[in-house]
């Protein structure tokens, strides 16, 4: 038992940023699509969303039309997609620019990682976030 506790503590101290990022995306995807067992994901840049690629319950799709959720890191990508989809970004600039259509973002700002969900797009998609994510909802940027 003692060795198990030590191992647990060691894991707490040694989890890599990528592993933690993966867990954060797992919570985000789970909150946005709670009823999907396998989530169809489209990403515009594998390097920017490598943590998502490590998740088990996702299926990567090549066509954004067939995806349940779109993860976007580049401005150019917005010309290829439909705003009717759930869109999540990794940049404050993109979130601010497309705040009417983008549901949220996970990005670095002011030297710290931030999660933001936008109220109107959430309502548009009839999504109610779990209680522990409610405080990350903003009306606008």
């Amino acid at each position: 038992m003692k060795s198990l506790l030590s191992l647990l503590l060691l894991l707490i101290l040694q989890a890599s940023p990528l592993e933690i990022e993966k867990e954060i995306y797992k919570i985000i995807i789970g909150a946005l699509l709670p009823n999907k067992k396998i989530v169809k994901v489209w990403i515009d840049n594998p390097d920017a969303f490598s943590a998502i690629l490590r998740l088990h319950k996702i299926r990567l799709v090549q066509n954004p039309q067939k995806a349940d959720i779109l993860f976007i890191s580049k401005q150019d990508s917005f010309s290829k997609i439909s705003f009717k989809k759930i869109i999540f970004v990794n940049s404050y600039t993109l979130l601010k620019r497309y705040q009417k259509g983008v549901i949220g973002g996970f990005f670095w700002q002011k030297g710290r990682p931030n999660i933001v969900f936008l109220r109107k797009p959430l309502q548009l998609h009839h999504i109610t976030l779990p209680p522990d994510l409610q405080k990350y909802i903003e009306d606008k940027l």
Partner: peptide
Amino acid sequence: VHLLLYSLLFAQENIDGLLKRYEQEA
């Protein structure tokens, strides 16, 4: 057992804790 513990570790941690740890580990 390790895999199970690892899953438990993240399952029990809330998003605030994960963000804080992400900041420190990054």
